[in-house]
C-alpha cells in the first residue's frame, strides 16, 4: 500500500503483510473498525477552557501497520498523544491498548506496557551523554532498583546488553560518533533522532512519534523513513504525527485526519490526500499548497521536494 514499492520491506513478517493487506477492504469512514486493532479510543474528550482540543468519538489503530495522524496546527494531535500515553487526563472517555484498558494509568506504566511516545518539543536530557540517554531508554535493568544498584555484579551483565543495543541503534541513526557528547550539544535534528532512537530501546509494541522529521536533514530523512518501515516490518506498530506530506505519502499504510479535535477522515494515504474534504480541512485558505504530489517524488525531483518540505518544517518547528 505504500506509494513507493522499493521502500516496502521485502523481508516483512507474514503478519505484517497480512495486516497491511487487510486495510484495503476497509470502508474509508472516520472511526472505522480495524480487523486487528492495537489501540482503540472511545469518546475521548479534552477541553481547555472552552476549546474542544480533543473530541474523538471512536478511533482504532491497526496493529503492524504505519498509521499517520495528520491535521492542521491546533487540531489536537499532540493532545491526543498526551491523553493516550497518560501525560494528560481526558474529561471523559476510555481507551484500550492491546486489549488492556489504560484510562487513569500513569505515564510510566503506559510506557512499560509497550506504548512509547516521543515529544514534539524534543526532550533530550541535555547534561547526560548521548549513550546515557540511550541506556535510560532500556527496560528491566535490575540496577535501576536502589539496593541492587549498590552491587555492581548484579547489573553489569544487563548493562552490557543495553550498551550493545544502544550502540546498534545509534549507528542506525548515524549518532554513534556522538555517543560521548552531551545531548545538549546536539543540533535540533540530531536531538529528534536521539529521542526516537531512545524510544526504541525498550522494543515498544507501539511507538508514537510526534513530528519525527521536523528539523531533520533531508539527506537523512530518506534513510530514516527506511528505518521506520523496517521497524514495522519487524513487527512494531507505528503511529506518527507529521506535517511533511511527502513522508506521510511515502511510508504510511493508513492516514487519520484530525481537525478541531475530531477525526474527520481516514483511509489509505493516496485516497485521503485526494479527498477534497480533507484538503479543505487541512489547508484552510492555502489551497495552492502542494499536499505531497507523487510526481515530485520521481527521481531528481525527490531531493528538491524534500528540501522544500524540510524548510517548511523548520519554519513550523519553533512553536
Amino acid at each position: 500500500m505504500s506509494a513507493d514499492p522499493q521502500l516496502a520491506g521485502s523481508h516483512a513478517l507474514p503478519e505484517v503483510a497480512e495486516a497491511r493487506a487487510a486495510l484495503a477492504a476497509l470502508d474509508q469512514v472516520p472511526g472505522v473498525a480495524k480487523p486487528d486493532p492495537m489501540l482503540v479510543a472511545d469518546g475521548v474528550q479534552r477541553t481547555f477552557g472552552g476549546v474542544h482540543a480533543v473530541d474523538v468519538a471512536h478511533l482504532e489503530v491497526q496493529r503492524h501497520v504505519i498509521t499517520a495522524l495528520i491535521g492542521p496546527n491546533g487540531a489536537g494531535k499532540t493532545t491526543f498523544f498526551n491523553l493516550m500515553t497518560g501525560f494528560d487526563k481526558p474529561d471523559s472517555g476510555h481507551w484500550t491498548f492491546d486489549g488492556v484498558s489504560l484510562a487513569g494509568v500513569p505515564a510510566s506504566r503506559v510506557s512499560r506496557s509497550g506504548m512509547v511516545r516521543t515529544f514534539q518539543l524534543t526532550k533530550a536530557l541535555s547534561r547526560m551523554t548521548v549513550l546515557e540517554n540511550m541506556r535510560l531508554g532500556a527496560g528491566s535493568q535490575p540496577g535501576e532498583r536502589m539496593l541492587t544498584a549498590l552491587v555492581r555484579p548484579l547489573w553489569v551483565a544487563r548493562e552490557r546488553e543495553i550498551t550493545d543495543k544502544a550502540m546498534d541503534l545509534l549507528a542506525r541513526f548515524k549518532l554513534d560518533t556522538k555517543k560521548d557528547d552531551f545531548a545538549g550539544s546536539l543540533s535540533g535534528g540530531q536531538r529528534k533522532l536521539l529521542e526516537m532512537a531512545r524510544a526504541l530501546m525498550s522494543d515498544p509494541k507501539l511507538v508514537m512519534l510526534d513530528e519525527p522529521m521536523a528539523g531533520v536533514n533531508p539527506a537523512l530523512t530518506q534513510s530514516l523513513l527506511g528505518h521506520i518501515i523496517e521497524l514495522r516490518d519487524e513487527g512494531t506498530t507505528v503511529l506518527f504525527v507529521e506535517h511533511d506530506m511527502h513522508m506521510v505519502r511515502h511510508i504510511s499504510d493508513w492516514v487519520v485526519v484530525m481537525a478541531q479535535g475530531k477525526v474527520v477522515a481516514e483511509g489509505p494515504p493516496k485516497q485521503v490526500m485526494d479527498d477534497q474534504a480533507v484538503i479543505d480541512a487541512y489547508l484552510g485558505a492555502h489551497h495552492d499548497t502542494d499536499l505531497g504530489d507523487d510526481s515530485l517524488l520521481d527521481e531528481g525531483g525527490r531531493i528538491d521536494a524534500e528540501a522544500d518540505a524540510e524548510s517548511e518544517a523548520e519554519l513550523e518547528e519553533p512553536k
Binding site: 500515553t85 501525560f87 500513569p106 505515564a107 510510566s108 506504566r109 510506557s111 512499560r112 512509547v116 511516545r117 516521543t118 515529544f119 526532550k123 533530550a124 536530557l125 541535555s126 547534561r127 547526560m128 535510560l136 531508554g137 527496560g139 535501576e144 529521542e195 531512545r198 524510544a199 530501546m201 525498550s202
Partner: peptide
C-alpha cells in the same frame, strides 16, 4: 534534566 522524558521511558 527532564522528568517527563524519564516518565515516557517507563520510570516511576
Amino acid at each position: 534534566e527532564d522528568e517527563d522524558a524519564v516518565r515516557s521511558l517507563g520510570k516511576n
